[in-house]
């Protein structure tokens, strides 16, 4: 249960690209071919280990439909990582990435780590977007990139964990102010025995938390 850090993620992208399926594959290790339309936000969580530390990922899975855009837009706030997903078998979902990216950049904190994901890599025969195109888009906009399959679970673990590693590195570099929860990072409940491994800034937090 105890974790050193909690990272908040948000999954965004067009409707039907497999956002909910990616989440389910990551949290429950299963694939559900027919999934109800997400009509607002749904949540998932899983514990991972990075650098020997327990990290809890809190994942917000948002509706892709245009009509819910005003609602989902408000969920970017306080996210440390975003998975921006398109469907490699549907060119239009790739074409919309710019709009998604603008939205994300405008409504999130500037340090948010964005992972670009080309999903449904198992459907090679129906591919409409080349892997190189995804890589080029990611390079151009400074994103990390992976192709995944929520169905076969290919690269799903890696997508979530690599994003977490990137956030973790940024914390080590001091890029994130971990005491400002608007950055999507929380420090776990503290135990005296583990205090020695934590940096001094967290001691300050503990005092702050204790006063209320």
């Amino acid at each position: 249960m105890a974790y050193a850090y909690l990272f908040k993620y948000i999954i965004i992208g067009d409707t039907g690209v497999g956002k909910s399926c990616l989440l389910l594959q990551f949290t429950d290790k299963r694939f559900q071919p027919v999934h109800d339309l997400t009509i607002g936000v749904e949540f998932g969580a899983r514990m991972i280990t990075i650098d020997g530390k327990q990290i809890k990922l809190q994942i917000w899975d948002t509706a892709g439909q245009e009509s819910f855009r005003s609602i989902t837009r408000s969920y970017y706030r306080g996210a440390a990582g975003a998975l921006l997903v398109y469907d490699i078998t549907r060119r239009d979902t790739f074409n919309h990435l710019t709009t998604w990216l603008e939205d994300a950049r405008q409504h999130s904190n500037s340090n948010m780590v964005i992972m670009l994901i080309g999903n449904k890599s198992d459907l090679e025969s129906r591919r409409e977007v080349k892997k190189e195109e995804g890589e080029a888009f990611a390079r151009e906009h400074g994103l990390i990139f992976m192709e995944t399959s929520a169905k076969t679970a290919s690269n799903v673990e890696e997508a979530f964990i690599n994003t977490a590693k990137e956030i973790y590195e940024k914390i080590q570099e001091g890029v994130f102010d971990i005491n400002n929860e608007a950055n999507g990072i929380k420090i776990g409940p503290q135990h005296p025995t583990t205090n020695s491994t934590l940096s001094s800034s967290q001691g300050g937090h503990q005092a702050g938390g204790g006063c209320c």
Binding site: P189, G208, G209, C211
Partner: peptide, 17 residues
Amino acid sequence: TRVRSAVVNFMGGVMAG
């Protein structure tokens, strides 16, 4: 903001515990 931050962080701790 600082107070609220502390409150929210505390919340996380309470639930996780």
